[in-house]
Simulated scan of single mutants.
Amino acid sequence: MGRPEVVVLDYGAGNIHSAMNALRHVGANVELSRDSKAILNADGLLVPGVGAFGTVMEDLRASGAPRWIGQRIAGNRPVMGICVGHQVFFERGVEHGVQAEGLGEWPGVVEQLDAPMLPHIGWDFVCPPAESDMFEGVANERFYFVHSYAVQKWDFEVGNPKIKPPQVTWAHHGVDFIAAIENGPLWSTQFHPEKSGRAGLQLLRNWVETL
């Protein structure tokens, strides 16, 4: 079996090379692209994100990316978001009193953590569900966070009992916040797996092995 093809979405986000190198290390062929054909045809799409929620959403919309991301998710094609690339899948973000609309895959507001020290920088444990595929083999490991904002409330209802609800992983810094979500073809992490050493590489390997 060949190496899966992963596109890292090129919409102007910084600090992408460590993620690309980590994905190569765990067995993927990796391309940085904003070409719609490459994005739609890849085995996996990684959505990075650095900076302010509103700015990232503006850049995503300017590149046309929300349409391609939505098409992949609707077609059950794997997508993974990291950091602000995780946050944008929620309904909206609020930074310095300014609200910005997100991609709306999940309910929730990205807002400032109520913590004694911000930004939250460093290694922390997370609390994944027992049946998590994302955290297979690394459920008791620490991961590296760099952020001041996160989703702190989760209110998701599935009307059809045959549909599996998203699996939510929590962490704590001043308050509980969502550290990761697994939702069918869509995985995302508030922390940086590409900067989380062996545990982060294993998490990315878990994703690549689903492609």
Rank of each mutant, 00 (worst) to 15 (best):
A150D: 13
Q202V: 13
V208P: 00
A150V: 08
Q167F: 01
G197W: 07
P161F: 14
S188W: 02
I163K: 06
N183G: 00
E182N: 00
H172A: 14
P193Y: 03
R205I: 03
G159Y: 05
V158C: 14
P161Y: 13
S196F: 01
V138Y: 01
E209I: 01
S188Q: 11
E194R: 05
F145T: 04
N140L: 06
K162G: 00
T189D: 04
F191N: 01
Q152C: 15
S196M: 04
F191A: 05
A180V: 08
T210W: 02
L201K: 14
H173M: 12
G197R: 05
R142W: 10
S196Y: 01
Q190C: 11
R142G: 09
H172I: 14
Q202A: 13
A199W: 01
R142V: 13
N140E: 14
A179N: 12
G197E: 11
G200A: 11
D176K: 15
P165F: 03
A150L: 11
R198P: 00
I178K: 12
A150G: 15
K195C: 06
N140S: 14
A171V: 06
N140Q: 15
T210M: 12
L203W: 06
Y149I: 09
S188I: 05
A180Y: 12
D176G: 09
G197A: 10
F143S: 09
F177A: 11
I181R: 02
A139T: 03
V151Q: 09
S196E: 06
W170T: 13
W154L: 11
Y149A: 06
G159A: 13
W154D: 10
G184P: 04
G137C: 02
G159C: 08
N206L: 05
S148F: 10
E182S: 00
G200F: 01
W187A: 04
S188Y: 02
V168R: 11
I163G: 00
A180D: 06
V208C: 02
N160P: 03
S188D: 09
G200T: 05
H172C: 15
Q167H: 10
T169Y: 07
Q152L: 02
F156P: 02
Y149V: 10
L201N: 11
G137F: 01
A179E: 10
I163C: 01
W154T: 08
D155S: 12
T189V: 15
N183H: 15
I181K: 01
W187S: 02
Q152N: 12
D176C: 11
W187N: 04
G137E: 03
I163Y: 00
H192T: 05
L203Y: 08
E182P: 01
G197M: 08
P166D: 07
K195A: 08
N160V: 09
A139C: 01
F156L: 13
Q190R: 06
F177E: 13
F145Y: 08
Y149M: 11
I181S: 04
H173I: 14
